[in-house]
């Protein structure tokens, strides 16, 4: 097993375990409360509107929007960490078929690992600090790193002689 392969498989397993633990923690301690808050805010908004308490109704809609903003990102962080980890493990099995030298293959693996860590981290930061530029920048940089690594893998597979 090559160094690139080991890095992708063990890095992928570690990232998957981390992503699952994060997801488990979120599901046990945060998700149900968040879903209750989200559904409750929407129902409260409509009930307040039925009672003609429009100011409270709009406040409840704003609360719904803010809660949903967090919820979407938290679920995205969890699923993207695990999804990228799965991709790393699968590519770890196939990386030796990428038609580049060992050194380049290792750099591709390392790039994919770094991007897979940083991209969801940026999304998580967006959830922690709404609208912060550094959070979006982190996510964009992470996504760009993963894109470059994947493009290199595509080229490497396509170059392979039959």
């Amino acid at each position: 097993m090559s160094a690139a392969s080991k890095l992708l498989i063990f890095g992928g397993i570690a990232l998957a375990v981390f992503g699952m633990l994060y997801g488990l923690h979120y599901a046990l301690f945060v998700e149900h409360q968040t879903l209750d808050r989200m559904g409750g805010s929407l129902a409260t908004a409509f009930t307040n509107a039925a009672d003609r308490h429009m100011s409270e109704a709009h406040t409840a809609i704003a609360a719904y929007g803010a809660t949903r903003y967090d919820y979407v990102r938290q679920v995205d962080v969890h699923s993207h960490w695990i999804g990228l980890a799965m991709l790393m493990i699968v590519l770890g099995v196939a990386i030796d078929h990428v038609a580049f030298g060992d050194r380049i293959r290792f750099w591709i693996a390392l790039t994919l690992l770094v991007g897979s860590l940083v991209f969801p981290l940026g999304v998580l930061l967006q959830s922690e600090s709404h609208g912060a530029a550094f959070a979006s920048a982190t996510a964009i940089v992470g996504a760009a790193i993963v894109t470059v690594a994947l493009a290199a893998v595509v080229v490497g597979f396509a170059r392979q002689s039959g």
């Binding site: 078929h97 894109t147 994947l150 893998v153 595509v154």
Partner: peptide, 14 residues
């Protein structure tokens, strides 16, 4: 088949 599935699959992911 393997080469096309590997390259095509990674391209789809990309």
């Amino acid at each position: 088949e393997r080469r096309i599935l590997l390259a095509g699959g990674t391209l789809l992911v990309l």
